[in-house]
Each structure stands twice: as structure tokens, then as C-alpha cells.
């Protein structure tokens, strides 16, 4: 991708200025504020930190956040793969509009998606009133949280999978078919292994986004401690009670998870690029 920078040729100007500005800006806007998370959480001491992050209410919030994010990312991986496949392989009326609209959850302010989903899935909403007679409580429940996280995660799997599917040569499938593979076999043995890195990356991105999501969830979840309280909401609850150290400690564990996810995505893409090169 990157062209080799020639060592004999002249260096371009402006390196000191731009790198200086970049590092200064990053330090002021990102690193200094983020370091406060460590400093404040450190104020608790190791024992205090452990006590805060293992409180039943905190553990319940972790379980809920991870569970709902995992479920939503899983659902989006399955349906996102179907959507990406249709967008790449089939032509149907409105394909370009659908393609553009997949990005909507990314462009729509989360507060807007939050109130729209809460209204839609509430017992009086279009979908909620269909679910209510079946005894399904969509809004103000854990299901509601998952619904909001599904909405927010739609673009991730579709957009990471699309380029991989476009690179897939249909003649390989034809070859598999001509060698006697059934459609299911072609899918499982030929297509899936080739798009697996993208699929995993998409899942991880959707999961990471869902884990930290706040705006679209608060309106549709009931926000009941121990029941429907996600971690970001718990952090806000702690801040409102001036429990800054506790909020920082919970935030720090979340940040740790986010950084682990970021590293795993890097690893996945490194694996994928190596895989691509050896082919």
C-alpha cells in the first residue's frame, strides 16, 4: 500500500512542526484527561479499587453490558453477513439506497435513535403493541437494551464484510460447484474461511461499540439497578452521587476492556493481511 520512502531523496519539510503539534494536541485533548482516570482510580488503593469493581451492582452491570453487547453483535454478524452478501452479489430495486442507509446508525445522533426505538418498541408503539399480546416486553427490559445495541451495530459487520466479499472471485465458487460441492459445502468450506477475518473484525467492532453505548440505550432500558443498568449508566449514577473515585475505577476497567478489544482487532487485521499476502 505505502510507497517506499526513498532515502536518497530530499526529506520533505515540516516534520518537526506537524509532529510537535500532533503530539501536543493529543496530549492536551486525549492523554492528560485519560490519565486522570488512572490517578483518580489510584486514589482508592488496590483494596478499595477491588471492592468497588466487585460490588454486586457493578458486577450485575458488567454482566448485562457484556451479555447484551455479545448477543447484539452476534445477531448483527449473522444478519449483517446476509445483508452484505445481498448488497455485493444481487441487484434489486433500491439496492443503492439500502447500501447508503446501512450507515444511518452511525450518522444518527444516539439520542434520536434512543427515543425512536423506545417509542417504536414501547407497548403503544408499532412493534411493541404486536409483541405485548405475546407477553414479550420489548422496551424497558433487557431485550430493549439488546434491540438498541443491534441498531447501533448494524453498519459494522456489513461494512467490514463488503470489501472482502467484493474481492471474492465468483469463479472460485463455480469451481467448487463444478467439482461437486453443494451450496452449503461451498459456503462452509470455500466462502466462510476466506471472509472469516472480516467477519470476526466486524463482530469485534460491533461488540466494542455496543459495550460503551449510552445514548440509544438509556431511553429504552428501564435503568433499574441490578436489572437493566448498563455500565455507562452506572458510571453516570456514580458521578451524580459525587463518587468520582468509584466512577473512575469502573471507567478504568471499561477502558481496559476497550484497549484489549482494540489490540485484538489489530491482531485480527495483522493476521488477515498476512493471510492475504501468502495467497
Amino acid at each position: 500500500m505505502r510507497k517506499r520512502t526513498s532515502h536518497t531523496a530530499a526529506r520533505l519539510p515540516g516534520f518537526t512542526l506537524t509532529i510537535g503539534f500532533t503530539i501536543a494536541y493529543l496530549s492536551a485533548v486525549v492523554l492528560l484527561p485519560l490519565s486522570m482516570l488512572f490517578m483518580r482510580a489510584a486514589g482508592l488503593g488496590p483494596a478499595g479499587f477491588w471492592e468497588v469493581v466487585t460490588t454486586p451492582r457493578v458486577v450485575a452491570a458488567y454482566k448485562l453490558s457484556f451479555g447484551a453487547a455479545f448477543a447484539a453483535a452476534g445477531i448483527n454478524t449473522i444478519f449483517g453477513a446476509v445483508i452484505a452478501w445481498c448488497l455485493v452479489r444481487y441487484s434489486f430495486p433500491g439496492r443503492r439506497i439500502v447500501d447508503a442507509m446501512v450507515d444511518l446508525p452511525f450518522a444518527l445522533p444516539t439520542a434520536v435513535s434512543g427515543i425512536a426505538l423506545a417509542t417504536l418498541y414501547s407497548p403503544h408503539g408499532w412493534i411493541g403493541q404486536l409483541l405485548a399480546p405475546l407477553g414479550v416486553k420489548a422496551a424497558y427490559s433487557r431485550l430493549g437494551i439488546a434491540i438498541a445495541l443491534v441498531f447501533i451495530g448494524i453498519p459494522f459487520v456489513v461494512r467490514t464484510l463488503q470489501p472482502a466479499l467484493e474481492d471474492l472471485d465468483p469463479t472460485i465458487e463455480e469451481a467448487a460447484a463444478s467439482l461437486g460441492a453443494s451450496r452449503a459445502q461451498t459456503l462452509r468450506r470455500v466462502i466462510l474461511p476466506m471472509v472469516m477475518p472480516s467477519l470476526l473484525t466486524g463482530f469485534t467492532l460491533a461488540f466494542a461499540r455496543a459495550l460503551g453505548e449510552y445514548g440509544s440505550v438509556v431511553f429504552i432500558s428501564g435503568n433499574m439497578p441490578m436489572k437493566t443498568e448498563i455500565v455507562p449508566l452506572l458510571i453516570i449514577a456514580q458521578l451524580e452521587q459525587y463518587q468520582y473515585e468509584a466512577a473512575a475505577a469502573i471507567g478504568l476497567t471499561m477502558l481496559g476492556c476497550s484497549i484489549l478489544i482494540l489490540l485484538s482487532i489489530n491482531f485480527l487485521q495483522w493476521r488477515a493481511s498476512r493471510f492475504g499476502r501468502t495467497q
Partner: peptide, 9 residues
Amino acid sequence: AVSPVISGM
């Protein structure tokens, strides 16, 4: 990568 809530906090 970080939650919006953490960004504000």
C-alpha cells in the same frame, strides 16, 4: 474506542 460516558467523565 472509549465509551462516550468515559469521554465526558
